[in-house]
């Protein structure tokens, strides 16, 4: 078994109204020093074999084809 964590974030320059709202709420909670919040997504994918090379390639393809919309999002894959 291989466990992979996929992190999808908005590309730089893409407006993130949800991140902005969270940023505002943190300020409302009196946390000072918050310059910016960007919201993203995390996917934990469990692969049923132990071939790391294949898993990495497959998960990259999954990100390109479905997990991320590469028009507006970047993704990073960590195998654990």
């Amino acid at each position: 078994m291989i466990k992979a964590r996929v992190i999808v974030t908005l590309k730089n320059g893409v407006l993130d109204p949800q991140g902005k709202a969270i940023e505002g709420a943190l300020t409302a909670l009196s946390f000072d020093g918050v310059d910016q919040v960007r919201q993203g997504k995390v996917f934990d994918v469990v692969i049923d074999h132990d071939n790391k090379k294949k898993a990495q390639a497959d998960i990259n393809a999954m990100c390109e084809k479905l997990l991320a919309n590469t028009v507006i999002e970047d993704f990073a894959v960590e195998l654990v």
């Binding site: 407006l15 109204p17 709202a21 919309n69 028009v71």
Partner: peptide, 15 residues
């Protein structure tokens, strides 16, 4: 999402 048109639709700016 199918790539038949360019760009993306995101959450409304007003949320």
């Amino acid at each position: 999402e199918a790539g038949l048109l360019p760009g993306a639709l995101m959450r409304n700016a007003s949320l």
